[in-house]
Design a protein around this nucleic acid. Structure first.
Lengths: 201, 201, 201, 201
DNA sequence: AATGAATGAGTTTTCATTCAT
DNA sequence: TATGAATGAAAACTCATTCAT
C-alpha cells in the first residue's frame, strides 16, 4: 500500500520547522528524548537555537508535535477504513492490517510515543491521551458491532481485545526492522489474521 | 495464583540495597529514569548518596538490577511451566496466563523496562537483551512443538506469534490498573484464551 | 629587555575568555590545578560557569591553553635569537639569557607547567610534549654547531647539556621572587654565563 | 656506587606501613597525589582503609613521610661527602655527582616532591622547606669555601650557582629513564663536571 | 527571521574520613 | 589491629532557555 509514510527524505531543503521536526524525530528515536540536547537537534537540522525557539516554544513542543502528527495520520486512515460498507470482519481486518503498516512506516514516531509520553507536560499529555482513546473506542465499536452481529465471539470483552491487539502493534518498535524478512504490510496481514482468528466464535 | 509479586511492602526495614532498589523502582515507574534524581531516590530510601554509591556503581546499575530481577523471576516461572508433561496447548496456556499475571504483579518493573532500556549502558543492555531473547525462544519452541504436532495452525510463523503475544503483554503497563475491573490473573486467562484461539488450526 | 611578559594586568575589561585565562593562571599557580575549583575561577573572572563552558570545553582546556600560550611565546622568541648571524657562542648566550628572562616574566605559567603536566589529558599532553621537544632540539642544534666549530667542548653530550640547562631554568618557579635581589634579566645573564663557562673547551 | 636506592622491591612482605608507603609512592609518581585515591593505595598495598588510618593520620601524612624519607637519605649522604678532608673541588664534585645518582635512584620520590609540595599542609610544608634549605646552605658553604680559596671563580653568587645546579638535578624526573643510555651515576659525573667547569676561575 | 553569548539551577559522581564492631 | 559501611561536602559539567543585537 502506497503512502503509509508520513514524510519523505528528512533534513533536505523543506522549511526550517520541518527540518527541525525531522531531526528531532530521528534523534529522539535513536537516543531518547532526555538524552538528546536541543543543541544536537539544531546542529542536525543545520540551524541555530534561536531559530528553533522561534518556531517551537520548547523542546517539549517538538515532542508534542511528533505525537500530534502521528495521531492525525493514523486517525484519518482508520476512520476511512472503518467507515466502509463491507462486512464488519473485512473492515476490522483492513483497519488492523493498516494500523500495523502505518506504524511500521512511522516507526520512529511510535518508538518515541511509548517511550517518552510520560515526559510530556501533563496538559499536552492529557490531550494526546484523549485523542488516542477516541481511536481505541472507534476500533472497539467495530468489534462490538461484530459481536452483536454474531460474527465474533462475545465471551471476550471487546475492550480487552482492543488492548490485546494494540499492545502488539505498539510494540512493533522493539523488534521490527525495515530490512527484516517481512514488510510492514506483510506483518499487518499476519496480525490481522491472528486477530480475526482469535475472534472466531 | 499466589506469589506472583517479586517483593512485598517497599522501603520498610530490609537492607539498605533493598530499600534503594524499592525506592528506585517506584520513582522510575512514576517519573521516569531520567527525571528521577539520585537525590530523590536516596531521600525516599532514607539513606545518603554515599551509601547508594557504596552498593551500586551508578544510577545505571540500579536500572540494570531492576531488569535483572524481573528477568530472573519471569524466566524461572516460565521454565517451570513449560517443562511439564501435560499437552502442549495446556502448557502454552499456562505459560501465557502466568506471564501476564507476573507482569501485572510487577508492573513497575515492566513499565521501566520498556520505557528506559535505551538509556542503559550498551554492555548491560546487550546482556539484558540476550536474556530476554532466550525467554522468547523458549516460548517459540513451545509453539513450534504444537505446530509440529498439528495442534496449532502452521501457517503463521511461530516467531511472529511470539512477538504478537509478548507485545500485548509488555504493553500492559500502559493500561493495567491494580484497582481496575479485572485482576492480573483474569486478564492472563483472557489473553491466554485469545492466544490459543488464534492458533486453532 | 622589554616585553618579556605575555599579558598585562589580569581580570580587567578584556574579553571573557581572556579574563578566565588570567584568573585560572593566577589561581592554578597559587593553589594548584586540582585544588582550584571551576567555581573559584569563574568567581575571580566575574562570570558564571556556563560562560566558562561556552568558551572552554573543560577545566583541562584551560590548562592546555596556558601551556600553549607559554610555548608560543618562548618558541617565537627563541627562534628569532637563534637565527641571527653573530657567532654561535653569542647566539647561545642570547637564547639562554632570554629564556630565563621570559620564564621569570611568566613565572605562573612555568610553575603550572611543571607541576600539572601530568594532569593534562594524554592527547593534549602529547601535543605539548612534542612542541617542547622541538624547542629543546633547536637549542641542542646550537650547541652542536658550536662543538663542531670547536668553540665548545665536545666531550659533554649536547643533549645532556640541554637537559642540564633547562632543568635550571624550569626550576626558577621554586625560588625566583619578583621582589628578590636580582631581576629575571640579571639572572638570565648569570645563567647564560655559567652555561657558556661550562662549555669552554 | 651501591645503595643509592632507599628501598628495595615494593609491596612484598615487609610491614603494613612499608607496603602502604611503597604503594603510595608508586601511585603518586604515576598518577599524581590528587588523582590517586586512598582506596587505590590500600588496594595496591593489599590492606583496607581502616588499616591505613591506623598507621597514618591522613593521606597528607603519607606524602609528608615520602618527603621526610628522601630528605633523610640525601642529607645523610651529602654531609658525609662534604665533611671529608680532600680538596674542596673534589668534595663538591663528589657531592654533586652523588646527589644526582641518589635522585635518579629515587626518582619517584623526587617527582612527587616537586610536583606536590604545594598540596602539603602548610605546617608540614614549612618543615620540609626548612630541612631542604639547610641542605642547600651546606652546599653553598662548599662553594663559598672554594671561592674564598680562589679555586672557584668569585664573580658568580654562590647562592645562584646552587639554585642553578639543583634546578638541573631536581628536574631529572622529567626526562631521566632507568632504561636510558646513561645511568644515574654517569649523569652524575657529567653534571658534576659541568658544574666544576662553570666554576673555573 | 535569526544569532549565539550568557545564565543558573540542576545533575551524577567522588572521596577523605569516621566509627561501631 | 583491622574492617567496611556510611557520611557529607564538594566537585565538574550539562542544558533548556533568554535576550540584546
Amino acid at each position: 500500500m502506497a503512502g503509509t509514510e508520513v514524510r519523505t527524505a528528512p533534513e533536505v531543503a523543506e522549511t526550517v520547522p520541518q527540518r527541525l521536526l525531522a531531526a528531532a524525530t530521528r534523534l529522539f528515536a535513536e537516543h531518547g528524548f532526555e538524552t538528546t540536547s536541543v543543541q544536537q537537534i539544531v546542529d542536525a537540522a543545520g540551524v541555530t537555537k534561536g531559530a528553533m525557539y522561534h518556531y517551537f516554544g520548547s523542546k517539549d513542543d517538538l515532542l508534542h508535535e511528533i505525537y500530534a502528527r502521528l495521531l492525525r495520520v493514523q486517525t484519518a486512515r482508520m476512520e476511512q477504513e472503518a467507515a466502509g460498507d463491507s462486512p464488519v470482519a473485512d473492515r476490522l481486518h483492513a483497519v488492523a492490517a493498516d494500523v500495523v503498516a502505518t506504524t511500521a512506516a512511522n516507526l520512529d514516531d511510535t518508538v518515541i510515543f511509548f517511550r517518552s509520553m510520560h515526559l510530556l507536560h501533563p496538559d499536552k499529555r492529557a490531550e494526546v491521551r484523549a485523542q488516542r482513546r477516541r481511536y481505541h473506542e472507534r476500533v472497539r465499536a467495530l468489534i462490538e458491532e461484530g459481536q452483536a452481529a454474531g460474527v465474533f465471539r462475545a465471551d471476550e470483552p471487546a475492550e480487552l481485545v482492543v488492548d490485546f491487539f494494540f499492545g502488539s502493534v505498539h510494540h512493533l518498535g522493539t523488534w521490527f526492522r525495515r530490512d527484516g524478512e517481512l514488510t510492514g504490510e506483510q506483518i499487518g496481514e499476519h496480525f490481522a489474521d491472528l486477530l480475526l482468528a482469535s475472534l472466531r466464535p
